[in-house]
Amino acid sequence: MQEIRAELSGSVWKVLVSVGDSVERDQEIMILESMKMEIPVVAPAAGTIGSIEVAEGVAVETGDLLAKVAVP
């Protein structure tokens, strides 16, 4: 499982995938919002979404775990 962590502090605006979805490398899986900017979070590699650790609207800090991707 590859972990996807927040690169900045902000809040989770949109979660674009569900657990079990297969994703491509660089596919947007969620969008964070900070300082009036939307910051896409992308899959680091092709795989399957193993878990989603945050919900829309919650605040996140730099380094917080957002999701895990199972990479074949």
Binding site: E7, L8, S9, G10, S34, M35, M37, I39
Partner: peptide, 12 residues
């Protein structure tokens, strides 16, 4: 700006 000067990511 309060932001990372390389990737331009917001940095509160």
């Amino acid at each position: 700006y309060a932001e990372d000067p390389v990737r331009f990511l917001p940095a509160p």
